[in-house]
Design a protein around this nucleic acid. Sequence first.
DNA 1: ACATTAAACCTGGTTAACCAATTATAGATT
DNA 2: AATCTATAATTGGTTAACCAGGTTTAATGT
Lengths: 233, 233
Amino acid sequence: MKLEILTKNESEYIQKDIISKIRDLINLKNLEPGDKLPSERSLSEKFGVTRSNVRDAIQKLEHYGLLKSMPQSGTFVANIGVIAMNGMIEDILRLEEPDFKSLVETRILLELKTARLAALRRTNEDLVQMREALDAYTAKVLNGENAVQEDLLFHLAIAKACGNSTMNTFMLIITPEIITNFEKYHVCDKNQPVIGIKEHEAIYEAIKKQDTEEAKQKMKDHFKELYKYCYNI
Amino acid sequence: MKLEILTKNESEYIQKDIISKIRDLINLKNLEPGDKLPSERSLSEKFGVTRSNVRDAIQKLEHYGLLKSMPQSGTFVANIGVIAMNGMIEDILRLEEPDFKSLVETRILLELKTARLAALRRTNEDLVQMREALDAYTAKVLNGENAVQEDLLFHLAIAKACGNSTMNTFMLIITPEIITNFEKYHVCDKNQPVIGIKEHEAIYEAIKKQDTEEAKQKMKDHFKELYKYCYNI
DNA sequence: ACATTAAACCTGGTTAACCAATTATAGATT
DNA sequence: AATCTATAATTGGTTAACCAGGTTTAATGT
């Protein structure tokens, strides 16, 4: 058990080490945007690690938009300058695992916005999907069952309707961690879901009649308990 | 050139196909949280694709927190239920590439919040780093050079100071795309940077004296032009 | 000299064999 | 019959050889 965690940390450490070495190399060779990095093979040899490790590190930097791999050609420095490259890699290396408070804080920020934007931009098709999610949630709650999943799916339906793919992606990223932490910390109260139905309906109605401020306000009301929980912990 | 894009799209299509097949399998076998998925080998055989493809698809679902791979043991369904699993995979499959407007809209949302939180929580060390980024930016602007990178690094310094690792991560994710799009669309005006110095200084001062509302307002002022640009396009 | 072309060499990606740890199985021991 | 143990099978991860397409190089023809 602990060995597995250890090896995971170790592999993470190796990756960060490689990333910092890539940064050093970019600085040393004064590589500019569009320049080619040495091949994966030579990097793995130079750093004394496997090519897989190098590939994983490159993939991570690619995910943050700093490098770009081209098949049969090479890996290239993205179209951002050396200074931004250095600063961002520094930040990436220092990034810590998100804590629950950060997650909730970010979720509230995103959801107040997506509710507002959804009221502004929702299509009829969006409304149908929100209605379906809401009905599924209501049915489970009235049946006395745990409805955390249906709850979140209603919120994801709003995110989809907000017409902003970046916010939609971010909501998808934080949702699973929210769910697992909810069940871990037993955030969901036993009798709160019944209140939740009314609050969800209020949000839905506001979005339906395209009242942006009311949508935001109803979402705020919905998060009142969560907000308190988040800042009391 | 176009071939490369084609193959990328094709590989993306294959991955989405595998992901939907994994979803179908979870539904068919009624797999619950914690249950084990079939091995990568049997999946690749069953789907008629390579094991690498299966691994990539699993890795993507792992990134969204839906699966969890354990070395020498298996891949397990995450601690979220079947309903959420289905809804989220559906969303992930339909996710579209972020457009520039989404990016800017999300950036403004995040930055108004990080400015406010940074004013609330910044340490002295945070202040030092923001000061350094700001000085680097000012020096370049006064020298007549392009200072987009230094600009963004100042904003990232604020994100770091806001004490929310999730928002910090999200800022890091969108920053490179912002930079490349800025240079692509030539958003940065020739004479605007000089105004930018004053605006940056105002934000810094507000954060320094821990005036949350002023920090938010100064950031809002700073984004006025960008905001107009975003909604006129 | 220069342009053209073909061949040798690199490239990232893919594949299949391999590894170590885990899990299932069957046998021995009590 | 129950329990422990050792062995065989299975797992995700790793490695090294391979592939197809790009890139460089140098030879060739004009």
